[in-house]
C-alpha cells in the first residue's frame, strides 16, 4: 500500500502546525486523460495531451472528488454528465468528467468514471496551485492520519 507523508516545518526547521493549517493536507498531483481516451486517440493517430501538474487538497467534506474545470477541459476531455452540489448556501449544477489522477510522489494512479468539475482557479497557498480535491470516494479506500499539532499528515492509498 503506497503511503504519502506530508510534513510542514517552521522557518527554523522545526515541526509545527502553521504550514498545514494554512495550506491544508495537499499532495502533488498530475491530471491525465482517461485511459480509454488515450487508447481512442492512439487509434485515431491523434496526439495524447501531456498531464497537467499541480496539487490536490484532501477534502473530507466532499462526497466525490473534484477537478478544476479549466484544467480538465484543456486536456480535451468532454463532460459526460451533470450533477447537483448541495451545500448550506444552496444547490448548483456542475459538469462531470472522466479523469485519471496520478500521484507521482508515490507512483500511484486512480482512474475515475467521473469527477465533478469545479472552479478551483486561485485556490492554493504560495506556489501550490490546487487543481483537484480528493473526496470521500477516494478516502473510502484509504487511511488518512492528520497530525495537526505536528503539522503533518499521512495518506495510505
Amino acid at each position: 500500500m503506497p503511503i504519502y507523508d506530508g510534513e510542514f516545518r517552521t522557518q527554523t526547521g522545526q515541526p509545527g502546525p502553521g504550514g498545514l493549517l494554512q495550506a491544508g493536507p495537499v499532495l502533488p498531483l498530475e491530471i491525465a486523460i482517461p485511459s480509454a481516451l488515450s487508447k481512442f486517440l492512439s487509434t485515431q493517430n491523434q496526439q495524447i495531451p501531456a498531464p497537467r501538474s499541480g496539487f490536490a487538497l484532501i477534502d473530507t467534506g466532499a462526497t466525490r472528488s473534484c477537478v478544476d474545470s479549466q484544467v480538465i477541459s484543456s486536456l480535451g476531455v468532454n463532460s459526460i454528465g451533470v450533477t447537483t452540489l448541495g451545500t448550506a448556501k444552496g444547490r448548483s449544477q456542475h459538469y462531470l468528467y472522466p479523469a485519471k489522477f496520478r500521484f507521482p510522489a508515490i507512483k500511484f494512479e486512480v482512474e475515475f468514471g467521473s469527477v465533478v468539475g469545479v472552479d478551483l482557479s486561485g485556490q492554493g497557498a504560495g506556489n501550490m496551485q490546487i487543481i483537484a480535491l480528493i473526496g470521500r470516494d477516494v478516502l473510502s479506500r484509504c487511511i488518512l492520519i492528520y497530525h495537526g499539532t505536528k503539522g503533518s499528515f499521512s495518506l495510505a492509498l
Binding site: G24, D59, G61, A62, T83, G86, V116
Partner: peptide, 16 residues
C-alpha cells in the same frame, strides 16, 4: 430519486 453530492468547504469558499 435524486443524487446530490456535497462539497461544503468548496462551495462556501472556505478552501483558502
Amino acid at each position: 430519486g435524486k443524487d446530490i453530492d456535497q462539497a461544503p468547504a468548496l462551495m462556501l469558499g472556505l478552501l483558502n
